[in-house]
Design a protein around this nucleic acid. Structure first.
Lengths: 125, 125, 125, 125
DNA sequence: GTGGTCTAGACCACG
DNA sequence: GTGGTCTAGACCACT
């Protein structure tokens, strides 16, 4: 499904959660699709089941997963426009600003950045 | 100078370093400008001098600061275009792609994103 | 494992790091081998764990060690031939030139130096 | 005469001493040649006279300089073969071994190293 | 048990 | 006064 880097300073459970978020956000995992069970994934990644469990709990609490008792975990629908959404989006915009500044600071050409952004935004989901 | 969140899970020294990086890449701190002494900043933030020291040390090892013995720490010049730079830039582009996807996933309009990006890129440094 | 000189002007953490580098570049410590835990080594050297930690941290940031959370620190693989490598090698050559001049200045015979160099280079790793 | 790097972590007085040693060892400064006065050199390098003074003291105590009261400092003759010499040479050989290992560890070719060493040793002093 | 963070407080070298 | 080192001791997150 994906690889985790045991050597990374980042906790494994965060890496697992991050990977799921990425797959969901990019559309690789669709709404209501079933995800592997904790034990299956733990075995596949050769990590402790507790670690995967922790990742799933986090994903569920952040609204990316939902769980049906006895059936497993599933991908949630994308968020509706709610009160908290604009708050989250402004946080994302803040990160985006920082990233753009960092690219410029590292000598990247503005045109290249714009081109890249347009390329990403226009690719079909 | 800036605020840190003592309650955050993020280590204090990382927050300090992150804030300095932000101020440097956005151009708020200029080349060769002196930064507060370890003791001064520690007092201002009400943290232990060792903690600030750790942040400064990291900033120095990453090339953002340089130190003159007995005189203090100073802002380094922006990185030259070296061989390692492209590696760093591709990492930044990877983060950028993820961020753009996340904005779209949260229902943000493509036009608004493009507008924001152009706004950031065109503002005078 | 090795000895450090508590009286030396050289910081303890640098001595520790230096010793590990020596063991790594001479091949005494192999890739992926586990190194003593911070606490173990601190006890063995009768220094503070923070001091050993600092050494390990530096070795990690310089690419000699890698860390697996909750499991310990390990020896990294030798560096790939990257762009920055030639820069480092030319620095080493500069030191080598100085060292050779110093040997000659101290009256050492050229033949003896050459013999020594060939001996070191040809010994099996 | 030479440049010092104020940004280096290395103390200025050590840099000054090191530079003199280098010039003496490579034969750029000859026996009995007069060196600049402390004040002259301090002005030329724009550093504190105390710092230059400290460097000169160190060079004198290590036998590279000798001082004639009221006339200034001069370059000493190369060391005769004394009891301490072999001790120093074995230390230099130790450093040499380390340097050679480090070059190999960084992927340098043995032939290139040998060629470099021969080149340095055969160049006229 | 592992590494990582933080504090309090002391001492040193450098300029 | 500046950064740098070190200790003792506490607490936390991860596996």
């Amino acid at each position: 499904m994906f690889q985790i880097d045991l050597r990374s300073r980042r906790p494994i459970y965060e890496q697992v959660a991050e990977n799921f978020k990425r797959l969901i956000i990019t559309g690789a995992l669709k709404e209501n699709q079933r995800v592997p069970s904790v034990r299956e994934l733990a075995q596949a990644l050769t990590v402790n089941p507790n670690t995967v469990q922790k990742a799933y709990r986090e994903l569920e609490s952040q609204g990316y997963f939902y769980t049906v008792l006895g059936q497993g975990s599933f991908i949630s629908a994308p968020p509706k426009q709610s009160a908290g959404a604009s708050e989250k989006k402004s946080a994302l915009y803040g990160q985006l600003r920082g990233l753009l500044h960092e690219l410029l600071y590292n000598g990247e050409d503005k045109g290249a950045v714009v081109k890249f952004v347009l390329g990403v935004l226009n690719q079909p989901q």
